[in-house]
Simulated scan of single mutants.
Amino acid sequence: MFSLISNTYALSLSPVAMCLEELIPSNNSNFNLYSMLIRTALVFSTLLVGLSVPFFGLVMSLTGSLLTMFVSLILPAACFVSIRSGRISYFQIAFCVTIIIVGAVSSCFGSYSALSEIIEQLFG
């Protein structure tokens, strides 16, 4: 399980690091050193945020339940219906509406679960 978490963290950190590395001139002889310093600073900054924000995992759970369902289920189905309106069958519309409803319900359950955990940690 640890390797899955570390690989996911490295994959999500890489685009940020690459954008910052583009600011370094490519003909710089210390490019590798600067690259390591940037990535190390990013790791330590996320560590500091994780340690300083109370209930960071629960806040990320709330954010994930809201945004992940929206981006992965609701938005694609809604965009498909919007783009292809008039050229899709009623079955496709019904299927997309079903996907949107499942995404909205899942998002509500996930948000409720995360909020109840946050409230329990704060007041319980």
Score class of each variant (00 low, 15 high):
71 V>Q: 08
97 V>Q: 10
93 I>K: 05
85 S>E: 15
75 L>V: 04
91 F>T: 00
96 C>P: 02
65 S>P: 05
65 S>A: 15
87 R>H: 13
94 A>Y: 01
65 S>N: 15
73 L>A: 11
75 L>A: 12
72 S>N: 06
67 L>M: 15
84 R>Y: 15
63 T>V: 13
86 G>R: 05
98 T>L: 12
98 T>Q: 00
99 I>V: 15
95 F>C: 07
74 I>K: 03
70 F>W: 02
85 S>A: 15
106 S>D: 07
107 S>N: 08
108 C>M: 11
107 S>L: 09
69 M>V: 05
81 V>G: 00
64 G>I: 14
90 Y>G: 09
77 A>H: 13
84 R>L: 15
79 C>T: 12
87 R>L: 06
89 S>N: 11
66 L>Y: 08
94 A>P: 00
84 R>N: 15
72 S>Q: 03
74 I>R: 02
63 T>F: 13
69 M>N: 12
79 C>G: 04
108 C>G: 11
100 I>D: 10
91 F>A: 11
104 A>R: 03
101 I>F: 04
90 Y>D: 00
78 A>V: 01
76 P>E: 05
69 M>S: 09
105 V>R: 03
95 F>M: 11
85 S>L: 12
89 S>W: 01
72 S>D: 02
64 G>F: 14
76 P>T: 10
75 L>W: 04
99 I>W: 03
86 G>E: 08
81 V>M: 12
97 V>A: 15
84 R>D: 14
108 C>V: 14
83 I>M: 07
82 S>F: 08
87 R>K: 12
97 V>K: 06
74 I>A: 01
71 V>M: 12
74 I>Q: 04
107 S>K: 13
79 C>E: 12
81 V>R: 00
82 S>P: 03
64 G>Y: 15
67 L>S: 14
63 T>E: 09
89 S>A: 11
95 F>K: 08
106 S>P: 07
69 M>D: 14
81 V>K: 00
63 T>M: 08
91 F>M: 05
89 S>F: 01
104 A>N: 06
97 V>D: 02
72 S>T: 13
74 I>C: 05
80 F>M: 11
97 V>I: 15
76 P>V: 02
96 C>K: 01
84 R>G: 07
102 V>K: 07
99 I>T: 11
76 P>K: 10
71 V>H: 07
70 F>S: 02
65 S>Q: 15
72 S>C: 02
66 L>E: 05
91 F>N: 00
85 S>N: 15
74 I>G: 08
88 I>D: 10
72 S>I: 03
86 G>C: 09
83 I>F: 07
108 C>E: 13
78 A>Q: 03
105 V>T: 07
94 A>E: 01
87 R>Y: 12
80 F>S: 13
75 L>Y: 06
63 T>R: 04
102 V>G: 07
86 G>Q: 12
73 L>R: 10
108 C>T: 13
86 G>L: 14
64 G>V: 14
78 A>E: 07
95 F>E: 05
74 I>W: 03
107 S>R: 11
88 I>W: 02
75 L>R: 09
102 V>P: 04
